[in-house]
Simulated assay, not measured.
Amino acid sequence: MKMNALKCGCKENRPQIAGKPGCICNNSIQKLPADSFKIPAIPAGRPLHNSTKANVNDNKEQSTSGKPELINRDDKKKSWTLSDFDLGRPLGKGKFGNVYLAREKESHYVVALKVLFKSQILDSEIEHQVRREVEIQCRLRHPNILRMYGYFHDEKRIYLILEYAKHGALYKLLKERGRFDEKTAAIYVRDLTRALVYCHSKKVIHRDIKPENLLIGHNLELKIADFGWSVHSPSSRRMTLCGTLDYLSPEMIEGKPHSYAVDIWSLGVLCYELLVGLPPFDAKDSHQTYRKIRYVIIKYPDFISERAKDLMGKLLVINPEHRLPLTSVLQHPWILENAPEGAIPSAHIQEQK
Rank of each mutant, 00 (worst) to 15 (best):
K53M: 09
R73Y: 13
E12C: 08
L82Q: 05
K292V: 01
T240K: 12
K95A: 07
V99L: 12
S107L: 14
Y188K: 04
N4L: 15
R291F: 07
D123H: 09
E212Y: 01
G92E: 11
F227D: 02
N72M: 06
I253L: 13
K114L: 03
E351C: 09
K20Y: 03
I253T: 01
L91Q: 12
F303T: 01
G22F: 00
R237H: 15
I209M: 03
P143K: 04
S266T: 05
E69T: 10
F117Y: 13
L170Y: 10
Q129S: 12
S305D: 01
K105F: 06
L122P: 00
G217S: 03
E12V: 10
R132Q: 15
E61F: 08
A102M: 12
S328T: 06
G92C: 12
S305A: 02
W80Y: 13
D58N: 12
Y171G: 02
R237L: 15
R291N: 07
W265N: 03
N59F: 06
L248R: 03
V111D: 06
H348V: 08
V111M: 12
I71S: 09
K38E: 15
G217L: 06
L32G: 03
A195G: 13
I39V: 14
I187R: 13
R194S: 10
L140F: 10
Y171A: 11
R141Y: 08
W229A: 05
K2V: 11
K7A: 10
S230P: 11
N319M: 07
S107T: 15
K353V: 14
K202R: 13
V269N: 02
D154W: 04
G342V: 05
F37K: 11
N26G: 09
F37G: 09
N72E: 13
A112H: 05
S286V: 15
